[in-house]
């Protein structure tokens, strides 16, 4: 299976302290890949380095982009495998390549309706000029209508379509988390990065989440990279797992292999909640 993301020798340090140290791993196409590690292992930092919120000190982040998508943006691949290196690119350009993420502390817009929140996910696909949007020319209106339908599909898919016109601000946590996921689906993603999708959910919601993650992969044919503390979820949903500790690579393998790995056990000692 071809790879969609390859992280190579990634390193970043804050004030002399290495948060991520020479980390390499790769995610295959349509794979559900878990990144685990004890608290403070640098998991979210890895995400932030991939999505360019942080600029890594060293290393590269190779991302496979569809040739059509590149052609549409009039760009060329950075290497012979048709990949581009995300490092150094502006944060807001990353979604263009089909890489989209959620946040640990659910970043949605409380003052907008659910469907408008999802529409933000399609931001980069809007083609109508600023002027035609300001004057509501037919083209802008047609575009808005088409994307609104697409957004409704995403909301329905995640089972919150009936709330579409309500404001996001007053919704319970579970709905907000689903909303954030629905938003990632607008961008026709190749890879979705989920930062602790189960945090704050109750047991039955977490069970539903595993099914949702598999459904997303099936329906949208994309890979999913997730950081998660809920080991039950990680072990049940992931194809492969990479374990890190203090920013360093620890082990990589299937859930069964990871569960057997002595290094992983050692790293988690004292964190009884997680193992």
């Amino acid at each position: 299976m071809s790879e969609v993301l390859r992280v190579e020798n990634l390193s970043i340090s804050f004030g002399g302290l290495a948060a991520v140290d020479d980390l390499s791993f790769s995610v295959s196409d349509q794979e559900i890949f878990g990144l685990i590690g004890p608290n403070g292992a640098g998991k979210t930092t890895v995400f932030n380095c991939i999505t360019q919120f942080y600029k890594p000190d060293k290393g590269s982040v190779w991302f496979t982009v569809d040739p059509e998508r590149l052609a549409a943006r009039r760009q060329k691949a950075d290497n012979a495998e048709g990949q581009i290196n995300l490092v150094g690119r502006p944060v807001h350009s990353i979604i263009n390549y089909g890489l989209v993420r959620t946040f640990q502390n659910v970043e949605i817009i409380g003052e907008l309706s659910l469907v408008d929140n999802v529409l933000i996910g399609g931001h980069v696909d809007f083609r109508a000029s600023m002027l035609s949007q300001m004057l509501r020319l037919p083209r802008a209106r047609a575009e808005e209508k088409a994307y609104r339908e697409k957004a409704m599909e995403a909301l329905d898919f995640l089972g919150i379509g009936h709330l579409a016109d309500q404001l996001a601000g007053g919704q319970p946590y579970g709905v907000r988390k689903r909303l954030e996921m629905a938003r990632t689906l607008m961008a026709e993603p190749k890879l979705i990065i989920l930062d602790e999708p189960a945090a704050g959910l109750n047991e039955s919601e977490t069970d539903g989440l595993a099914e949702t993650i598999r459904e997303i992969r099936r329906r949208y044919e994309c890979a999913i990279l997730l950081v998660e503390h809920d080991m039950g979820l990680v072990m049940s949903v992931c194809d492969r797992i990479c374990a890190i500790s203090f920013g360093k690579f620890l082990a990589m393998g299937t859930p069964a292999e990871i569960q057997q790995d002595p290094l992983v056990h050692e790293a988690y000692l004292g964190e009884r909640d997680d193992v």
């Binding site: 919120f53 944060v91 807001h92 990353i94 989209v100 970043e107 933000i120």
Partner: peptide
């Protein structure tokens, strides 16, 4: 509402 989320969505 959230500058980081906006950037992640391509704004």
């Amino acid at each position: 509402s959230s500058e980081v989320a906006a950037q992640a969505m391509g704004v």
